[in-house]
Every structure is written in structure tokens, then in C-alpha cells.
């Protein structure tokens, strides 16, 4: 690829991304009332999206299930439990991540199985 082609490739990606982010705001500008259906959809979607984003973090699991996948699930469950217990975002994220790092570095399943 020449430099011009590289710049074009990056520009198209940037433009496409900007388009996907701005389109809803262009279709439903702030100075006009938003249709009730869109308002209700906008209220319905976020909890579902947060759920989808959790699954997105585990997207490599089904195709490539290894001992790492087991650690990711265990660390995820630990994060949920710590958060239900203390409801402290930093504590839950820290303990969840530390448990994953510990499992990954010091607990080698393949050497046991």
C-alpha cells in the first residue's frame, strides 16, 4: 500500500466509525421531539447492551476452550460474588483481576491433567 492508500484506509475507518456514532443523533436531532417508540427503545436497550458486552468479553470461549477459559469463568464468578457481597466497584474489579492473574500464572492445569 502506498502512503496515500494507507491514509485513505485509516480515514474510511475513522469516517465509518463517526457515522455509526452520529447517525442516531442526526436522525433524531435534539431540537425536535423524539418518537415515543425510539424513546422506549432507548430505555429498553442499555441493560441488554451491558449484558451483551459481558458476553463479548468471553467471545473466544466457545471456539477455543482451554484451561484459560476455565480461569476466566472462575475469576468472573469471583468478581460477581465479591460485588454482591461488598458492592464496591474497585474491590470487585481488583479481587477479580488478581484472582485471574494468580490462576493464570501459578495454577497450570495442563501440568496436572
Amino acid at each position: 500500500m502506498s502512503l496515500t492508500e494507507e491514509i485513505l484506509t485509516i480515514s474510511i475507518a475513522a469516517f465509518g466509525t463517526i457515522l455509526t456514532r452520529f447517525l442516531p443523533f442526526l436522525l433524531f436531532p435534539g431540537n425536535k421531539p423524539i418518537p415515543i417508540f425510539i424513546q422506549r427503545l432507548g430505555k429498553f436497550l442499555p441493560p441488554a447492551i451491558l449484558g451483551v458486552l459481558v458476553i463479548y468479553c468471553y467471545k473466544d470461549l466457545p471456539a477455543n476452550f482451554t484451561s484459560n477459559s476455565v480461569f476466566e469463568i472462575i475469576a468472573g464468578v469471583i468478581t460477581v460474588l465479591v460485588h454482591l457481597w461488598k458492592k464496591n466497584m474497585f474491590l470487585s474489579i481488583s479481587i477479580g483481576t488478581c484472582s485471574y492473574i494468580l490462576l493464570l500464572n501459578f495454577f497450570n492445569l495442563t501440568s496436572i491433567l
Binding site: 451491558l50 449484558g51 458486552l53 459481558v54 468472573g76 468478581t79 460485588h83 474489579i93 477479580g96
Partner: peptide
């Protein structure tokens, strides 16, 4: 894994 943990925490809060 912090990103996974972040999204899990946001989802549990929800």
C-alpha cells in the same frame, strides 16, 4: 481481565 471485570460489575449493578 480488568475490562471483563469492569463490564461484569456494571452489569451486576444494573
Amino acid at each position: 481481565f480488568v475490562m471483563t471485570a469492569l463490564f461484569i460489575v456494571l452489569f451486576v449493578d444494573q
